[in-house]
Structures are given as C-alpha cells and as structure tokens.
Design a protein around this nucleic acid. Structure first.
Length: 256
DNA sequence: ATGGCCACCGAGGGTGGA
C-alpha cells in the first residue's frame, strides 16, 4: 500500500499536477493539505473520473485537508482536532485496517506570537486525539504538514530560536511521538531530507529546504514499511507541462 | 540550472504562508 502526504498550496491551481501524480505514482492513499477552497469548489469529480474517492474538510481561502483513495473510507471524522471551528486542519478515516489521520498543523508565524500560542495549543489537542485513536486502532498513521523540523539535520539552516525549529514546537512533536509513533523518514545518501523549499530566492535549486512534512506510524504499521521517498521531481516546473507552477512542498510517500 | 514568490480576495494591495 502506497500512502502519500502533500501540501499542494491550492487544490484547484494544482489540479493538473495532482492528476499527473495519481497517474504516475498510483498511490492508494493521497493526503492533501492547503486546499484553499470551499467544499463546492473542491474538484471531486476530477478525482472520481480517474477512479479515486475523496473525503474533504474545506473552508474559504485558507487551510483545508482531504484524503483521496482507491478504496472506500470508513469511520470518517471531519475536523476532529479543532479549536476554532472555522479552521479545517484535520480529517481522519479508516482504509481496510489502517487508520489515517491527516493534519495541517498551524504555521505559527513567529515564536511567541498569538499564532505560535495557537499552534502549541493545537498540538496539545492533537496529542490527546492521537492517544485516544491509538487505543482504538493499532495500525495507525498520522501524517501531513507539521510545520515542525524534527531534528537539526532536517533544516538547511537550523535556527533554534525561530519558527519551525523552536524547542517548544519540537517538544510538542516529541510528546506525540512518545505516544508510540515512529517517524517513517529514512535518509537517502544521495540527497537532502527536505520536503519544503521557499518559493523565494531560488531556494529549491540551491536546496535550501526543511523537512516539515512527516509521516508518523504506529509500531504495528511501521514494521511493515518497505520504502520511503520524497518526490522532489514534482517541485520542478518542467515536471507538469500543463501546470508548470508547483507547490512549494514535495509529496512524501511510504510503501507498506 | 531544475531560478529570481505564490495564492487568496477582489479590483488594488493587503494577508498569510514557512
């Protein structure tokens, strides 16, 4: 089974890229973040037309998460981790015997800002939710855009006092891992571990990036993982000729 | 070079992303 997480930065702008991705990589489960559209603008027919189902939690302009899959989801939860009900940042469902929880974690903007406090609060809520879910579903994966750099080696330049890298954020992530999850990341000797590169300053071609898109699996699932890949090629404007504008994130895939 | 922000809303620039 192939499971992917991808922050697409607008599902409608990126639709050609997503359809090409489905065709080329044939994931069983594709979790998207930053849909940036209302439910009625979500391109579900385009996914149905190529044999995929979708569940989604949408809002105007910001956020939004969905799970695109070959098989039918069960036990669907829309926005299970929620502080402000307008913010759609979480969605969960079961596919066969695997529980999939898709998160778009709060960015946080700057350390000690109101948004940073909101981020930490949101992470605390997600920890309680994951704990409850782990008790129900032994084969579980939490994945998405975490907006947290797990380790110093996961950033081109690790700044411990800045957003994505701060101690409080990383501690919140560690608390989630301590529930019994393992980061599926597997280093590749030929390339950096990054999954996000700023649009500005030619960051991608200079490989100034960060690893902030994560897949965290329970032990029962983690033991079955046979592959971990970051599909950086989708970040090249030449990859999808019908929509050369790319997301600033690359899709991350595991196979189990 | 695989480059030099992008997408949103709304009607022009302000906001948010990370």
């Amino acid at each position: 089974m192939k499971i992917v997480t991808w922050n697409v930065n607008s599902v409608n702008v990126r639709l050609p890229n997503i359809l090409k991705y489905l065709e080329e990589f044939q994931p069983d489960i594709l979790c998207l973040q930053e849909l940036k559209c209302l439910e009625e603008k979500y391109p579900i027919e385009n996914f149905n037309d190529v044999g995929y189902k979708s569940i989604q939690s949408c809002q105007k302009t910001y956020n939004g998460v969905s799970i695109i899959s070959k098989s039918q989801p069960t036990d669907v939860q829309y926005n299970p981790v929620c502080i402000d009900k307008e913010e759609k940042r979480s969605i969960a469902a079961t596919y066969n015997d695997v529980r999939v929880i898709n998160f778009y974690v709060v960015n946080g903007q700057a350390v000690d800002s109101d948004k940073y406090k909101h981020k930490l609060k949101w992470l605390k809520k997600s920890e309680s939710y994951i704990k409850e879910q782990l008790a129900k579903y032994p084969k579980l994966i939490v994945l998405g855009d975490f907006n947290i750099v797990p380790n110093e080696s996961d950033a081109y330049e690790f700044s411990p006092d800045s957003i994505l890298c701060s101690a409080k954020e990383r501690k919140a992530l560690q608390s989630i891992l301590n529930l019994g999850l393992k980061d599926c990341f597997s280093p590749n000797d030929d390339e950096s571990p990054y999954t996000w590169w700023d649009y500005r300053g030619g960051a991608f071609h200079r490989d100034i990036g960060f690893r902030i898109d994560l897949l965290l699996a329970s032990k029962d699932l983690n033991s079955q993982i046979i592959k971990y890949e970051v599909h950086k090629e989708t970040r090249h404007k030449s990859w999808c000729t019908t929509q050369p504008k790319t997301s600033d994130h690359a899709p991350v895939m595991i196979e189990c």
